[in-house]
Nucleic acid binder design. Structure first.
Length: 756
DNA sequence: TGACTGTGGGTTTTT
DNA sequence: CCCACAGTCA
């Protein structure tokens, strides 16, 4: 028997060695779920199955990568040939091969959420519907859930219940918008996130050239991680692949109903319950021993989840010892909450010798990160914020990507609309509307419509010039590699010169972001490492880089380094830290006011809280504030109901309001405006004594002075320009990369060290 | 016809 | 607070 099997407990080993037939693994938090999955795959390979016949589906690129690394530790490089990836990326890869069978170009664009909403927005506008009544977000989520339930527009129109709901909500035209939206995406050669699932289902369902058989034969072993987070459509695809006459039903799903936190995007726990009915002879294994957390934490978690009505019975236990009781921080304000959490981090670092990477701050909404960033920066504690707007969603980055997308797929209307007048080249709203109308009349793409539309001579000339430029990109895309072409496009389009002309701090950071993107593309071109999956991506063309960018999230960034982790509770799933701070435990925030309308909503928030606290190994601290700034306004909220669900015996006794601490409250500043993407939010390690730092009034900052900045260290003011609030100082900070920074004096905290 | 400025309204989580 | 739009000016 192989070594790795000895690292498992009895239940885990059973789950690993029963490789034939359907298996359900119910895995509590910290119960070694990933270990079971990876060893199971390794075991399948050891049993002589070629790795490329194994398909492992996850929800994040990160967990796929981690899984593959761990498989490699057991079976070596063979792990690279396992098809492991997210639902979306694996399906996108299949669709690239098969797209033409369902009427899409294989170079189809993937629309991200922004793109989808923009399409919906223009449809609403064209139909002359009220923007207030037809709220884009509401429509988008309605369409998304229809797709995720396998209801195409035609069927939607026939479903009395849906139509009735829409008319009650006074939005009877949704089914029309939906149909137009689908047509518009198709015309643009684009698939949105849901399409990657939806279109794959229809490919398998319609089965042109018997593709279904091809993939059934290809994937003999299927594994699904986080099964509780799959939606109806995902499960339908899984069944297409595995459940048929003569199938071996080699499927293993792993999940925890108590950690189902994605109902808002269609996930349904029903899938776990249905799984038992759909696959006869199912073997179920329950992993109940928690290896992660101490008993106080596990007990509290069990008590909290006990308040939910529906769940699979299981008893999670730990023998790591009682450990430390849970601490609760009561703060008067969000600012005080930030300070006290930062104080506690300092305390834990010195008393328990934790390093930064042992610590995480978890919040319900990404917007909460700012205040913690502010204090961690003050205390010189390196941190990294995950989630929020990803790098690829920043305007300037999307602008350049827009050109690249257009070079690959000229039908891509969202890309076209984005770049046709950026940088400004005098092609205004009216002209674009005319092109769009022409495209609509003739059911052709806007790119084609540009040849037929009737315009005044001036506008015509500008359009021609634009088209010529893009054609040059297309031509070069056959000879240049991704980097050269991207750099060429960045210059030719005028993006670089436009950004260079903007000398504000924000402008500078935008330019740096574009440079970072180019650097990233260069890295892609030069990187000779093997990518995930069986088909080695030795394709360094722009297309192969650009096509999966929408699927790339900033969770995927490599993250070695010693920093405190800041992320949303959703993003934290699957992770663990010695010390965890779950912050903002207030009614209307956690649970979110959006979820408070329904009991199911509350139960999902409770599961989310359960996920959050079970990330902790040794220390768990929970905090809330009596008042906080939200959307620029003060708001007061009572402590979260979830706090009362924690048994008293698991709480530190001092669960009483501590006195507000002496430190003055600060409002967060805009952070990370200067510095490039990777470095921006991780703090430079400069030893500045925070207590001694006293910013000088900005009016006193003059050329030639030596100044001190908390993040950048010592520097020399080289130039001050602008007047009043708009004063900008150019300062040389020799201790950092990119030493020249332009800081808005209104915001910059600088301490004058000496006059020159 | 396009560029710019002020106002009003929404407001969660993610592939 | 941030974004999208409407209304105004060149």
């Amino acid at each position: 028997m192989q070594d790795y099997l000895n690292e498992l407990n009895d239940v885990q080993r059973d789950a690993v060695t029963n490789i034939k037939g359907p298996v359900l693994v119910v895995a509590g938090p910290g119960s070694g779920k990933t270990r079971v999955l990876t060893y199971r795959i390794a075991n399948i390979i050891e049993n002589g199955v070629p790795p490329w016949e194994i398909l492992a589906l996850t929800f994040t690129n990160k967990s796929a990568r981690e899984m593959k690394e761990r498989i490699a530790k057991v079976v070596g490089s063979r792990a690279n040939n396992v098809w492991a990836g997210t639902f979306h990326s694996i399906f996108a890869r299949i669709l690239r091969v098969e797209a033409e069978k369902i009427g899409y170009p294989s170079s189809f664009t993937i629309y991200d959420t922004q793109d989808s909403k923009s399409v919906i927005s223009s449809i609403i506008k064209e139909m002359n519907l009220s923007r207030d009544r037809y709220n884009v977000n509401a429509i988008a989520s309605r369409i998304s859930s229809a797709k995720s339930s396998l209801i195409p527009p035609k069927l939607y129109t026939q479903m009395k219940e849906l139509i009735q709901q829409d008319s009650i909500n006074k939005r009877p035209k949704i089914h029309v918008i939906y149909a137009k939206y689908m047509a518009r995406c198709k015309r643009a050669g684009a698939m949105d996130f849901d399409d990657l699932l939806f279109q794959l289902y229809y490919l398998l369902h319609k089965n042109p050239d018997n593709v279904l058989d091809k993939y059934r034969k290809k994937f003999k072993y299927l594994l699904v991680d986080e099964f509780q987070d799959t939606n109806y459509l995902q499960y339908a695809i899984i069944k297409k692949l595995v459940k048929y006459d003569g199938s071996d039903n080699n499927i293993c799903v792993v999940g925890d109903d108590a950690q189902s936190i994605y109902a808002f995007r269609g996930a349904t726990v029903e899938n776990i319950l249905d799984f038992e009915k759909d696959f006869k002879g199912l073997k179920t294994f329950k992993l109940e021993q928690n290896y992660r957390s101490t008993t106080h934490i596990v007990q509290a978690a069990n008590a909290i989840i006990g308040h939910n009505t529906k769940q699979i019975k299981k008893k999670i236990w730990s023998h790591k010892g009682d450990g430390t009781k849970i601490r609760v921080i009561k703060a008067m304000s969000d600012s005080e909450e930030g300070k006290r959490v930062a104080d506690t981090i300092v305390e834990q670092k010195t008393r328990s010798h934790f390093s930064n990477s042992d610590i995480a701050i978890l919040y319900r909404t990404n917007a909460q990160s700012r205040i913690f960033e502010e204090y961690l920066r003050r205390y010189n504690i390196p941190y990294k914020v995950f989630g929020g707007t990803s790098f690829y969603q920043r305007k300037e980055v999307k602008d350049l990507i827009g050109y690249l997308r257009l070079a690959i797929n000229q039908q891509d209307e969202e890309a076209l609309k984005r770049v046709i007048n950026y940088p400004k080249r005098g092609i205004g709203k009216t002209t674009v509307e005319k092109i769009s109308a022409k495209a609509g009349e003739n059911d052709i793409s806007m790119w084609e419509a540009m040849d037929y539309v009737e315009l005044p001579a001036g506008a015509m000339k500008k359009i021609k010039a634009f088209k010529t430029m893009i054609k040059a990109f297309i031509d070069k895309s056959t000879t240049m590699d991704a980097y050269d072409l991207a750099a060429y496009a960045a210059r030719q389009s005028g993006i670089i010169s436009t950004l260079k002309a903007d000398t504000s701090v924000e402008g500078l950071s935008r330019l740096e972001n574009v440079t970072s993107l180019l650097d990233g593309i260069k890295e892609f071109v030069e990187n000779d490492e093997v990518e995930e999956g069986v088909e080695l991506t030795d394709d360094k063309s722009l297309a192969s880089y650009i096509q999966n960018i929408a699927l790339h999230t900033n969770q995927d960034e490599e993250e070695d380094g010693n920093f405190v982790t800041l992320m949303s509770t959703h993003s934290a799933k699957g992770l663990e830290f010695k010390s965890v701070f779950v912050v903002g435990l207030e009614e209307n925030l956690f649970p979110s006011f959006m979820a408070m309308k329904s009991p199911q909503g509350i139960e999902e928030e409770r599961r989310l809280f359960y996920v959050a606290i079970t990330r902790a190994e040794e220390y768990l601290t929970i905090s809330f504030a009596n008042s906080r700034y939200r959307h620029g306004k003060h708001s007061n909220n009572s402590p979260s109901r979830f706090l009362n669900e924690i048994p008293l015996e698991n709480l530190e006794s001092s669960f009483s309001m501590s006195k507000p601490t002496s430190g003055t409250a600060v409002r967060p500043q805009r952070s990370g405006v200067a510095g490039n993407f990777k470095k921006a939010r991780t703090q430079a390690k400069l030893s500045i004594n925070v207590a001694d730092f006293k910013p000088s009034p900005s009016a006193l900052i003059k050329e030639g002075q030596k100044v001190l900045h908390l993040k950048f260290g010592e520097g020399v003011v080289e130039q001050v320009d602008g007047r009043g609030d708009k004063k900008v100082a150019t300062i040389n900070f020799p201790q950092i990369d990119n030493p020249k920074r332009r800081l808005m004096l209104k915001f910059a905290k600088l301490q004058i060290m000496s006059e020159e």
